[in-house]
């Protein structure tokens, strides 16, 4: 079992699989050594690490956007008129 992934899943409410699919486990593991819970959550949710964004992917994969069911602005074009659609009713 991977302790960092396990801790991240517990803190963020996203499964180990969901976290791994971001491709960010390894860079975040390196960054988050000795970090507080709040810092680890902020990193996963917003892609911000101590005032900077380590990579474009960190921003694009921010879990706050995923929780809300939308793409991080400027990362994906869901298509012309996609904004008309009824959003999903709840998070889970």
């Amino acid at each position: 079992m991977d302790a960092f992934v396990e801790l991240s899943a517990e803190l963020t409410g996203f499964s180990a699989e969901e976290l791994r699919s971001t491709g960010l486990v390894e860079p975040y593991r390196a960054l988050a050594e000795g970090a507080s819970e709040a810092e680890i959550i902020q990193l996963w949710y917003t892609g911000v690490w101590r005032g900077t964004v380590p990579s474009a992917r960190a921003y694009a994969e921010g879990l706050a956007w995923k929780a809300a069911g939308v793409a991080a602005p400027g990362t994906r074009g869901p298509g012309f008129g996609s904004w008309e659609r009824r959003p999903r009713g709840s998070s889970r």
């Binding site: 517990e10 803190l11 963020t12 409410g13 996203f14 819970e37 709040a38 959550i41 902020q42 949710y45 917003t46 911000v48 921010g62 879990l63 706050a64 956007w65 929780a67 809300a68 069911g69 709840s90 998070s91 889970r92």
Partner: peptide
């Protein structure tokens, strides 16, 4: 949503409860 996340984390939310609250 950065501000919402920070506020909810500061309020002690973690895990599934946090995910649901942000959504």
């Amino acid at each position: 949503p950065e501000s919402d996340t920070a506020e909810l984390v500061a309020a002690g939310l973690r895990g599934t409860a946090l995910r649901r609250a942000v959504a």
